[in-house]
Design a protein around this nucleic acid. Structure first.
Lengths: 206, 206
DNA sequence: CGTGATCCTGACCAATCGGTCAAAAGATAA
DNA sequence: TTATCTTTTGACCGATTGGTCAGGATCACG
C-alpha cells in the first residue's frame, strides 16, 4: 500500500516528544498516574499544555507509551540469562545487572512499582502472558542446573522473585534506605552490591 | 486543668470512624493518595461525603491518621527482636512474622509502599528519626552476634533491608507474583515461607 | 414525654482537572 | 515574496474534585 507511509518525524518533533516523555517519567514515577497533572508535565517539559496535546492525544497515551517499552527493557537482563553459561556466574551477573538498572534507572523502576502496586491496571494481562512466559522459560533452565547439582535446589520462581525484590528495593525505597543509613551524601549501592553478592553466593551454593 | 477532657466517643462515632478508616485504607492502598476521592471512601464506608467530613476534617486528616499508627505497627516485629534470645531463631522468627504481616495486612503494606515510593511526603522525617533509631539499636545487637560468631558477618543494615524487601514483595507485588506463578487460586505464601526460610538459614550460617 | 446534643443530608461553591478549538506564529520550499 | 505546512498559543469547556453550610433527622437522657 504505497502512499500510506508515515512521514519521518522532524527534529522539533523528536526533541519535544523526548522532552515530554522525560518530564512525564519524572512526574508519573513520583506521583503516580492520577497524581500527575498535564500542567506539571508541560511545565517540566517547557511546553504549554495545548502544545503537549499536539504531540500526544491524551495523558493516558503518554503513560502508555512509557509503560509499553518499559517491561521489555526491564526484562532484558533476565532474557540474557545464558543456559550454556556457568550457572552461578550467570545468575550473579543477572543480579548485578539488575542492581545496576535500579541504580541507573530508578525512575523507571518506580514507574513499574507504582503500576504493579496498584494492581497493574494498564500493564494488565501482559504480566500473565509475556512476563510469565519468559519466567517459565528461564525456570526450565534453572531447574536443569539444579538437577545437575550445579546450584542449590530451590524454588526457581521464588528465586527470581528474590532477585527482583532485593534489587528493586534500592530504587523503589530509596528514601527509606538513605534515611536509615544516614550519611546523607553516601551512595548505598557499593555496600548493597557486596551484600547481595554474598547473599546469592551463599544461597546458590549446593 | 479540669473540664478540658474530651468526651468519650459514642458507639456511632466508633463504628463510623472505623468504617471510614477501613474504607480509606482500601482506597489509599490501591489508588494512592491523590488517586483516591472522598466519594470513593464515602461510598465504601456507606456514608455520604458531608458525613465523612463530619468525622474527619479533611482527606489529608484521614490519610495522616492511617499513616501515623502504621509505622509503629509495622516495626513491632523488629522491636521484638530479643538480644538475649538465640540469634538465628530470633532472626528467623522476625522474618516469618514479617512475612505473616505481609499476608495478613497487605493493604497496610501497600499504603506504606505507596508513601515511601513517592518520597515519603507525609511520613517525612520520621524515617530519619524513629525508624533510624530503632534500626541503629538493633544493628548493635546484630553486630554483637556477629562478633560472637553466632551468625555470619554481614552488613547488618543491608541484612534488615533484605528482610524487608523479600517479605514485603509478596504483599506489594502480589499481582505480579500471582501472574507469574499462574494457578490463579493458589496461595503463594507457603512456598514463599519455605524459600525465605532456606534463604536466611543459609545466609546467616557462619 | 420533651429537649438539647449528636448525627446526617441536599444543595452548593471555588478550584482544578483533562481536553478542545480557532487562529496566530513560525518554518519551509517554490 | 508568496503559499503551504508545521508548531504554538490563549481562551474556553464540561466534569470532577475537596470542602462548606444551613437545616433536617435521630438519638440519649432527664
Amino acid at each position: 500500500m504505497p502512499g500510506l507511509q508515515t512521514k519521518p518525524p522532524s527534529r522539533i518533533q523528536q526533541e519535544n516528544r523526548r522532552a515530554i516523555l522525560d518530564a512525564a517519567l519524572d512526574a508519573f514515577s513520583t506521583h503516580g498516574f492520577r497524581g500527575t497533572t498535564l500542567d506539571q508535565i508541560a511545565e517540566k517539559a517547557g511546553l504549554s499544555k495545548p502544545n503537549l496535546l499536539y504531540y500526544f492525544p491524551s495523558k493516558e497515551a503518554i503513560h502508555t507509551e512509557l509503560l509499553s517499552g518499559l517491561l521489555d527493557t526491564w526484562l532484558d537482563p533476565l532474557r540474557a540469562l545464558d543456559p550454556a553459561g556457568d550457572p552461578k556466574a550467570e545468575l550473579l551477573r543477572y543480579v548485578h545487572r539488575k542492581l545496576e538498572m535500579s541504580r541507573e534507572m530508578p525512575r523507571e523502576s518506580r514507574l513499574f512499582a507504582n503500576e504493579v502496586l496498584q494492581g497493574a491496571p494498564h500493564l494488565g494481562p501482559l504480566l500473565g502472558t509475556g512476563l510469565k512466559a519468559l519466567v517459565d522459560e528461564k525456570t526450565v533452565v534453572l531447574r536443569a542446573w539444579m538437577d545437575e547439582g550445579r546450584i542449590a535446589r530451590l524454588h526457581p520462581v521464588h528465586l527470581i522473585f528474590s532477585i527482583w525484590a532485593l534489587t528493586q528495593h534500592y530504587a523503589d525505597f530509596d528514601v527509606q534506605v538513605r534515611a536509615v543509613l544516614g550519611d546523607e551524601g553516601t551512595d548505598p549501592y557499593p555496600e548493597a552490591s557486596l551484600f547481595i553478592d554474598t547473599l546469592f553466593t551463599k544461597l546458590l551454593s549446593p
